[in-house]
Design a protein around this nucleic acid. Sequence first.
RNA 1: GGCGGCUUGGCCAAGUGGUAAGGCGACGGCCUGCAAAGCCGUUAUUCUCCGGUUCAAAUCCGGAAGCCGCCUCCA
Length: 491
Amino acid sequence: MSLKVYNTLTGKKDEFTPLEPGKVGMYVCGPTVYDTSHIGHARSVVIFDVVFRWLKASGYDVSYVRNFTDVDDKIIKRANETGTDPIALSEKYIDEFHNEMDALNVLRPTIEPKATEHIQDIIDFIGQLIEKGKAYHVEGSDVFFSIASFDGYGKLSHRNPDDMIAGARIAVDDNKRNPMDFTLWKPAKPGEPAWESPWGPGRPGWHIECSAMSNRYLGQSFDIHGGGKDLIFPHHENEIAQSEALFGKQFVKYWIHNGFVDINNEKMSKSLGNFTMIKDVLVKYHPEVIRLFLLSKHYRSPIDYNENSMDEVIASLDKIYSFMARAKKAGVPMKTPGEVVEYSEEDEVMGTDGEDWEAFKAGMDDDFNSARGMATIFDTVKKGNKILDRNPEALHYLEKDRLEVICSDLQKMGNILGILSQNPEAYFKAKKEAGLADGNIDPSEIDKLVQERMDARKSKDFARADEIRAQLDEMNILLEDGPAGTTWKFS
RNA sequence: GGCGGCUUGGCCAAGUGGUAAGGCGACGGCCUGCAAAGCCGUUAUUCUCCGGUUCAAAUCCGGAAGCCGCCUCCA
C-alpha cells in the first residue's frame, strides 16, 4: 500500500510520488513571531510533525523546512507598542516557540530559516521578477507582483481573479495596476527596520519570503508545502505566482492544509477573548495528552478544544500507559524512551512487524489518518490486555512473544504520533506528583491511610476499609487492590 | 455577492458504492469482601431531510434545512 495525500491543488487524494525517488522536500509555513503561540499553531505544527515522522518512517530522506517570519508589520507594530526592538521581540518569541514545541515533543525540522537572514535571496528574487516583467516598482511606493502576468493565478484557491476583485473588501491602492497585485517590497518608514535594495531602503512583503526561502533550500520545485487552511489564499496562491512566474515550472506538487482549532465551538478570536495559548494548555495537560487530542480528528477537519474532550483524551492515554505498565510488570521487554523505535524494512523482512502495525500503516498511508491510527492503538491495547488477563502471573513463552510484538507495534505507533515516549512508571509518577502538588497533599498521609486500610482488610474490618476508601475518594484518590498490594492514583 | 467545507448512536469520532471502526459514557456479566482496573456482552435495521441513479448508497447526482470557514492579518 502506498501513501495517498489529499492535495488542495487537485482537490482530491493523490498517489504520493516524490519528484526524486526516495527523497522528499517539504516546506511548512512557520509562525510570524510577534506574539505567544496558541493551540491552533500547535495543531499545525504537530500535524506536520506527524507527516514528517511518517515520511521518514516510510523510508524517505526528508528535507523539512519550516520558516520564521521575523520581519513583518505586526512585529513592528508590537515592538513599537511595547517599546522593544523588533529583532529582540522576534527573538523572544522564537525562543518561546522552540521551548513550547520541544515540550510538545515536536521534532525540529531539518532547517528553520528566518526571513531576516535571507534578505539578499529575497532581493535577488524580486529583481529577477522585475526583469522578467512579472513585477514592477512604483516610484516612492512598493514593488508589486503583477498578477496579470501570471496565467495560473487562482488555481490553488480555485477562484478567478475577476471574482476576487468584485468581492474585494480591501481598499484598492491606486499605485497598483491591478487591485489584486500584491507587495513584494515595501519602503520603510523612519525608525522601521530596513534593508538597502535597488528600490530603496525597505523590507520584504510576507509572501516573497517563503518563495525565496523555499527556493534556497528545496529548489525550484519540491514535493510538499503545508500550512493552515487560511493560508491557501492569498499567501500560498501568491507563493505559486511568484515562484512559477520566475522559474516557469510547477512550484509544489502536493499542497497540504490543516483545519482550525475551535474553542468551545467558537472560533478563536480577539473579540471573543478566547485565545488559548500553548503555554497555558501545557500547564493544564500532559504534553502527550495535547498531542493525542490534536491528532484525534482528521487533520483537515476543524477540531473543538473543550474540557470534556480533553478529559476523554486523558482517559485514553492513561489506558494505554496502564497497559504498558502491566506488560512491563509481566516481564515483557519494553523499549526505554531513549531507544527510538523506528520502522525499518528489516522488521518487515524479519516478520517482527505485527498485524496492528500493518493496520496503523494503512491508516497513515491514507492521507495521514491519525484518528484511524488511534483506533488501531486501542485495538492493540485490548489484545494485549486480553493476554495479560488470561494469564497474568506466568505467561507462556508464546504469549510472551505475542505480547512482545504487540508492545513493539504499540511503541512504533506511539513514535509516529509522538506519544508513549515515557516509561509508564515515569508517566504515572509525574501524574501523581502533579496531583499531590495540585491538592497540596502529603503523600505519606495517603500511604498511612492505605496501610491502615490494608490492615483493616486483613482483619476483615471492611467497614473501616471502605471508610478509608471513601475518605481518599474525597481527595480524588482512587484505590486499586491488586495481587501485589494496593496502589492509588488520582481520578 | 463569490468560493469551499461540514451534518454518523447520549457525547467525541473513523468510514467516498457492497451492507455502520474506535474512544468516552450507560447497562448486564466475569473478577473482587465490596470496589477499581482489565476482559466479555448490550447500547445506530441506520448515517440532517426530500427526490434520483444503481442489483447495491452514509458513500454518487439533484434539491431543501442547519452549522462553519475563506475572500482582510491569521495555523
